[in-house]
Amino acid sequence: MRRLPRIVRWAALLVLTLALALASAAWLTARPGDPGLYPPAPGAETVTVRLVAQAWHSGLLLPRADLARAAAEAADGALVEVVERFRAYPALEIGWGDAGFYRAVPTLDALDWRLALRALFTPGGRPAVLHVVGVAASPEAAFPGAEIVTLRLSRAGFDRLAAALGRAVTARDGHPVILGPGLYGPSLFYAAEGRFGLHNVCNHWSAGLLHDAGLPMTPLLDTLPRGLVLDLAWRGALQSP
C-alpha cells in the first residue's frame, strides 16, 4: 500500500491542528446559560421569539405586545416609543450592525467587500445602528429563504432580553434617535449603543440578547449566522413551533 506524499500528510496534520485549535477556542470562550431563566419551567408562562438568520446577518423577531409590556414595566421610555411607532404590527424584527455597512448593503448582491472589511477591522470598532421592521405576515412569508429558529423563553427571560434591547437604543432627551428609512418594508434605522467590529458583529448581538434571556452562547461559533443556528441546535435550544 502506497504511503501518501509527505505534503499531503503535512496538509492533513495542519487541517487537524487548526480544527482542534478552533474547537478548543470555541469551548474556552463559551458562556453558560442561566438555568433559572431557560429553559422555562413546565407550565410556566412563555414568550415565543424567533431568530431570523440570513446569508450574512441575523436579527430577532419579537412579539410587539410582549415587548411593549416589558418596556412599559421597566419604564424604558425610548424603547416604548420605538415599539409604539410600530403599533400596527404584531411583531418586530430587530437587528443591529455597523452604521455604514448595514445601511449601504440591503442585499447580499449589493455586498461591497471594501465596506465590509472597513467595518470589521477599524481599530476600536465603528458606530452601530438598530434596524426595526414591522412584520404582519408569518415569519416564513416575511423572510423567504431565511433560517428561522423558534424559541420559547420564560417571561422573566424575555424581560431580561427586552431590558438589554432597551440599553441598545441611543436616546437623546429620553427619545430614540431616528436615522432614516430602513432597508425593506415598514422599517426605520435608529442610532444604537455599542461598537461594531470583528469581535462584536450582528450575530454576536443577536446571540447576546438570547444569552440575556438565559441561553448559553459560543461567541466564536456565533460569528456567522449559520454558526449561530448550529450553536442553538448543538445546545438543544431548537424547539418546535
Rank of each mutant, 00 (worst) to 15 (best):
P181S: 10
L165H: 00
Y190P: 03
D76M: 05
G125A: 09
H204T: 15
A146Y: 02
E73A: 15
L4Q: 06
A110L: 10
N200S: 15
L120S: 11
A68Y: 04
R167V: 14
C202L: 13
A41R: 14
A65Q: 14
Y102E: 05
L183H: 01
A233K: 11
L4N: 05
L16E: 06
G180F: 02
W234P: 07
A168S: 15
N203K: 00
G157I: 14
A68C: 05
A19G: 14
P90E: 13
V149T: 14
V15H: 00
A70G: 14
A78K: 04
A207I: 15
A142C: 05
P106T: 03
A207V: 13
H57V: 06
A156T: 05
F158D: 04
R235D: 11
A75G: 07
W27M: 13
D222F: 06
P144C: 00
P127N: 09
H57F: 03
S206G: 06
S138R: 04
L117K: 11
G77M: 09
V129I: 03
A162K: 04
S206R: 03
T122Q: 02
E147C: 10
A104S: 14
G236N: 13
Y184R: 06
T218H: 07
P39I: 07
P186F: 00
R85S: 00
E93C: 05
A141I: 10
A55P: 06
S24D: 04
Y102T: 11
L4W: 07
L215V: 07
T122S: 02
R3T: 13
D109F: 09
V47N: 00
F121D: 11
Q54F: 09
T17M: 02
R195L: 15
L67V: 12
I148R: 00
R31C: 11
P139D: 02
G125T: 06
C202K: 06
H211F: 07
A65F: 02
P39N: 08
F189L: 08
L14S: 13
V8P: 01
G194Q: 03
L16Y: 08
G157K: 05
A137Y: 08
V47M: 09
Y184H: 00
R103W: 10
F189K: 00
P39C: 12
D173Q: 12
A171W: 07
L153I: 01
L14R: 13
A168K: 08
P123A: 12
T223I: 10
A171K: 06
R235Q: 14
R69A: 05
V82P: 01
L60V: 02
Y38H: 04
M217E: 13
R6W: 12
I94D: 00
P90H: 09
A141L: 13
A164G: 09
G97C: 11
L179N: 05
L165Y: 02
R114I: 14
V80C: 12
A168V: 10
L210A: 08
G157A: 11
N203H: 04
A99Y: 03
L153M: 04
G100R: 09
F86W: 01
L16G: 12
H175K: 13
A164E: 13
G208F: 01
Y89N: 08
Y38G: 06
R155T: 15
R195H: 11
P32I: 10
A88M: 10
A65Y: 01
R3I: 13
L111I: 15
G36C: 10
R126E: 12
A65D: 15
A65H: 08
Q239N: 05
Y184M: 03
V229D: 07
D109A: 14
L151Q: 08
R126M: 12
F121A: 12
R69F: 01
